[in-house]
Design a protein around this nucleic acid. Structure first.
Ligand code: SF4
Ligand code: SF4
Lengths: 145, 145
DNA sequence: TAAATAAAAGACAAAAAACTCTTTTATTAT
DNA sequence: ATAATAAAAGAGTTTTTTGTCTTTTATTTA
């Protein structure tokens, strides 16, 4: 198990893929996205429906329809995608899963975790969705399994 | 969902608890540990059997039996506990779950993740199991939900 | 307006994780 | 030796996550 849920991994890979494939204003269909990031098609469909409701991606039905992103969304931080799918537990929660702890009576790892989750949050806040388009175009990076 | 599995959270809390309750050379039973860290008793029992097989905790059966830790184990890093339960995926694996990526053709987040997982690993390597005994004794920190 | 297209929605199914309950085995003390 | 104790082991159930399949709705083009 990594830091993110599988669902969230697919979500991240798909927004990278959509951003990369639609920067010219076109749209890309679910089948192409699914094969492009090697994810189960119908499972990904659910995820994209979710992201669509939450405004992370846009979609249109019918012929020549598909998913795309507008310029303002492209500039949003990756943290928005993670929060939409996995919630903010990764940023606000803690490693040991206690709920009734406090700053004055924390678990032993409290201070250590504060640093880690701050690192993660800052990384995801400074990373924008579109910033990898260049490398993806060049084939330097990949999203397939 | 936090960084660790629930199983791993219980494991960490229980080793802290056992370390804290047996530093005088005594033993502590499963019931007391379970209530002490507010975890399901029989579920925790499985986890401790596992940790016992892997040498993280010691145990003796029968009257006045229970779990304890020896001095050398007390000095081991928390990373050993995490690795015993969740494996080394958190340290070696990655955020996007790809398997056929490489340094030369990584996913877009590769470099970002390298920093994060290094942070986590270093934190868990420098944290020893016994180092919180003092604060637990003083009641400054707690392990109960 | 009809046919084709593609996402949205709904209903399941499989796998993994989390949790419960019972029986067995080892140890100790009487 | 026997009874009491406490961990180990085994056999489940429940819940959550992940994945599949089918039907419906919206849009476009002919
Ligand atoms: S004290 Fe901090 S790290 Fe520990 S359980 Fe509470 S919030 Fe989490
Ligand atoms: S490139 Fe790095 S971060 Fe990306 S999937 Fe591979 S190992 Fe993980």
């Amino acid at each position: 198990m990594g830091i993110f849920s599988k669902t969230c991994e697919y979500a991240i890979r798909s927004v990278f893929f959509i951003a990369h494939r639609t920067e010219n204003g076109s749209r890309v269909g679910i089948k192409e996205i699914a094969t492009g990031i090697s994810s189960p098609e119908h499972f990904l469909a659910k995820i994209l429906q979710d992201l669509s409701k939450k405004g992370i991606v846009k979609s249109v039905k019918g012929p020549h329809g598909g998913f795309y992103m507008d310029e303002s969304t492209l500039q949003r931080p990756l943290a928005d995608v993670v929060e939409a799918i996995d919630g903010n537990g990764l940023f606000t929660g803690c490693g040991l899963g206690l709920v009734s702890c406090s700053e004055s009576k924390p678990c032993p790892l409290h201070n250590e975790f504060k640093v880690i989750r701050k690192n993660i949050h800052e990384m995801l806040l400074k990373t924008t969705i579109k910033e990898f388009n260049g490398d993806l175009n060049l084939g330097v990076t990949n999203l397939k399994k």
